[in-house]
Design a protein around this nucleic acid. Structure first.
Length: 774
DNA sequence: TCATTGGGCTTTTTT
DNA sequence: AGCCCAATGA
């Protein structure tokens, strides 16, 4: 047996060497699933499987890179580099580039990021003269995105009366038309958005049996990490590719499913056993990462969820310190507390800055943390938020580069055609767009043939300006034939006047902008150098742009500087830190006010909390405030229900509970009044205590049986609930005024279907919806 | 056509 | 409080 396999425990070894057939690995937090995936691939290769035949889909590019490095250490670099390993988006973007002509796309198609998509949708809404207050571009985008992720094409949409009716009821009857225009415009621009990378892959595999066969035969072994976060579109791709050999291994943890909001379907993992023949399921339940206190506290949280797979996470680690809970007056104080606590731990425990992470629910919370850390002189790095490649100045440079590789790219064109200002104004652009729509071609093509379209009525001066622009781009295209990406980019920033434009601004921000552009150019130089080492890569501009489009903030190489990490909980998935501070543990923030209306949304927030807590190896801190700045205003806050849900024995409260402030929405009746007699009622009923050492199989069986499925502990005043009958007019905090159409379910699960004057029909769980009878 | 200003909107999370 | 966009005047 290979030496590396001895590093695995029994539970990890079994799925690692089970190479044939379909298997599912349910892996608790910190149970070593990455190790299983890595060694499994190494093992396959040792058994003689060609790396070309292995497809491994990961959640981030960083995870892929790290796994590849690890595998390279075991099987050798030259073998490992042939593995197909990456995110769904990056792997299938490569395949789509190769097969693009079959779908009528150019192989150098652009990838639109969310901002590009939203700008395009915005302009479509404007061109259709629709009310932008009703058709909000972000909402429309997310609606279209969800269609695409469910494989609902424009045609399918118009064939589905339910969907159309739902949009009509929401006062947005023209969503379908917007969708139609959006798809057409993307296609015409030679652009795919993020969702297209999956949708078009499905199209490719469905429409072309020979292509399907080719990739089925190629990918004899398929591995999917974070399977619980795959959406329907991804699910179908995997299913199609695995169909022939059925050598598929999916790894996931239903308790860490946190992407339902972008279409992830938890049923993919819950139903895996039905999808393939003879599925073998393995469980990794021993946590190696965290102290027992943290593991058990996390278990006590997830116990509140109804929908979950049977799984008991335990650890042999020490108890460790309790989770510290602290209440602070404001968000500023919260930041100062966290900063000084980090400072203290650094001193007393001799810890590096990189041993600490501050996790929050929303990016907006980072500011208070930053300020405090900066004042204390603690180095930090913020991940996510406005990522490097989303900054305006970077996008400006990239837009020129995009336009050079794909002149049809409409969003890139509109971004730079008059930046820096060259006298091509909105009127002219509108005319061009109109003509492009009319002739069903790209704007750039209209500009090239401007002399042949006299009806445009563009005056001679403007015409010259347009021609100069076209010629400039064309000359860059010539350069692109011979020069590498870095050389070209340098020329572009100079000749377009971008550099001069940026230099006009001498403010600190302006200087930072120039530095960012320099950093981008340096990054391109590194890229060109790096690509020379890879066989298939050409170091072309197109390749660089693809990497950039699909890069996440986590992927960016950083100097090895020792810094505290600040990020959202979503971004922290898969990472671990000795010390973790989870800040903003307040109702309406975490759980988010947007996610408290249905049980499933609330359960997702709870899983998010579970993810946050299980990032901690040694010590976790939870903080909340009494009031915090939101939307520029100081507003009152109350502690998150999630704090209450953890059994007290795992917590050390630095600020004992002040009973009148400590009210949770659960205890608030539907009229908003607080029933003080019920204040402490939601303390978790002590369930079967989690085992403190490795349980025997017998014990595990028993625990699984005893495990309560639902708590159903909150009582709601039935009398007030009974007032809510169909026809009642009610007011909701967020959705405004509406009328109850229907009531369903009973007791704790009673739901009302409500038609709101604005925002359409919503189904709300009465226990959580703060409804006022009118 | 361009620059400035004021108003409105934002905050859920991301490939 | 900050960002983006639209309206306004030069």
């Amino acid at each position: 047996m290979e030496e590396y396999l001895s590093q695995l425990n029994e539970a990890q070894l079994a799925p690692t060497i089970h190479t044939e057939g379909a298997l599912m690995v349910i892996a608790g937090a910190g149970s070593g699933k990455t190790r299983v995936l890595t060694y499994r691939i190494a093992y396959l290769m040792h058994k003689g499987v060609d790396p070309f035949n292995i497809l491994s889909l990961t959640f981030t590019n960083k995870a892929a890179r790290e796994m590849k490095e690890r595998i390279a250490q075991i099987v050798g670099k030259s073998e490992a580099k042939n593995l197909w390993m990456g995110t769904f988006h990056s792997i299938f973007a490569k395949i789509l580039r190769f097969e693009a002509d079959k779908l009528g796309y150019p192989s150098n198609f652009t990838i639109y990021d969310s901002q590009d998509s939203q700008r395009l949708i915005s302009s479509i809404i404007k061109e259709m003269s629709l009310d932008k207050d009703i058709y909000k571009f972000k909402q429309v985008h997310s609606r279209i995105s969800s269609f695409k992720n469910s494989l609902i094409t424009v045609k399918a949409y118009f064939n589905n009366p339910d969907l159309m009716e739902a949009d009509a009821m929401a006062k947005k009857p023209r969503i379908g038309e917007i969708y139609q225009h959006y798809v057409d415009r993307c296609f015409k621009a030679g652009a795919m958005d993020f969702d297209d990378l999956l949708l078009r892959t499905n199209e490719l595999l469905n429409r072309f049996p020979e292509v399907l066969a080719k990739y089925q035969n190629r990918f004899k072994y398929i591995l999917v990490d974070e399977y619980q976060d795959t959406n329907h579109s991804q699910y179908l791709i995997v299913k199609a590719l695995a169909d022939r050999f059925q050598n598929i291994c999916v790894v996931g943890d239903d308790a860490q499913s946190i992407y339902a909001f972008r279409g992830a379907n938890i049923n993919n993992i819950l139903n895996f056993e039905k999808d393939y023949d003879n599925v073998k399921t393995y469980r990794l339940e021993q946590n190696y990462r965290s102290t027992r206190n943290i593991v058990e506290a996390a278990n006590s949280i997830i116990d509140h969820n109804k929908t979950k797979l049977d799984k008991i996470v335990w650890t042999a680690n020490d108890d460790g310190p309790k989770i510290i809970v602290n209440r602070l007056p404001t968000d500023g104080d919260e930041g100062r507390y966290v900063a000084s606590s980090i400072f203290e731990n650094q001193m007393t425990e001799q810890r590096k800055a990189s041993d600490f992470a501050i996790l929050y629910r929303t990016n907006a919370q980072s500011r208070a943390m930053e300020d405090a850390l900066r004042k204390r002189g603690i180095k930090y790095r913020i991940y996510g938020g406005l990522s490097f490649y989303q900054r305006k100045e970077i996008k400006d440079v990239l837009a020129y580069l995009r336009l050079i590789t794909n002149p049809k790219d409409e969003e890139a064109l509109k971004r730079v055609i008059n930046y820096p200002a060259r006298g091509i104004g909105a009127t002219t652009i509108d005319k061009l767009v109109l003509a492009a729509n009319h002739y069903k071609c790209a704007i750039f093509q209209v500009m090239e043939g401007i002399d042949r379209i006299p009806e445009l009525k563009i005056n001679a001066g403007t015409k010259t300006k347009l021609q100069n622009f076209v010629n400039m781009i064309k000359s860059f295209q010539v350069t692109n034939q011979t020069a590498d990406a870095f050389t070209l980019a340098e020329e572009v920033t100079k000749k377009t006047g971008l550099v001069q434009e940026f230099k006009k601004d001498a403010t600190p921000e302006g200087i930072a902008r120039i530095e960012n552009v320099e950093e981008l150019l340096n990054g391109m130089r590194d890229f060109v150098e790096g690509q020379k080492e890879i066989d298939e890569a050409t170091g072309s501009l197109a390749e660089f742009l693809e990497d950039v489009a699909l890069a996440t903030d986590l992927d960016k190489e950083v100097d090895d500087e020792d810094r505290v990490a600040l990020m959202t909980i979503h971004l922290a998935k898969g990472l671990e830190f000795p010390y973790v501070y989870i800040v903003g543990m307040e109702e309406d923030l975490f759980p988010s006010g947007m996610s408290m209306n249905t049980r499933s949304e609330l359960e997702e927030e709870r899983r998010l909390f579970y993810v946050a807590l299980t990032r901690a190896e040694k010590q976790a801190y939870l903080t909340y405030t009494l009031s915090r700045y939101r939307w520029g205003k100081l507003i009152d806050a109350e502690p998150s229900r999630f704090i209450e849900e953890i059994d007290d024995k795992y917590l050390e409260n630095l600020t004992p509970i002040d009973s009148y402030r400590y009210k949770s929405l659960i205890n608030t009746d539907i009229f908003g009044a607080v029933d003080k007699s019920k204040l402490r009622q939601t303390k978790p009923v002590s369930s079967t205590p989690p085992p403190s050492h490795k349980p025997t199989d017998d014990q595990l069986q028993k625990l699984r049986k005893l495990r309560p499925i639902s708590k159903g502990s909150q009582k709601v005043d039935t009398e007030t609930m009974n007032k809510l009958v169909p026809g009642t007019r009610v007011e909701h905090m967020r959705f405004g005024i509406g009328q109850i159409l229907n009531i369903e379910g009973s007791g704790q699960d009673k739901k009302a279907e409500i038609k709101f004057t604005q925002g359409g029909i919503k189904k709300l769980l009465l226990r959580f919806a703060k409804l006022k009878v009118l």
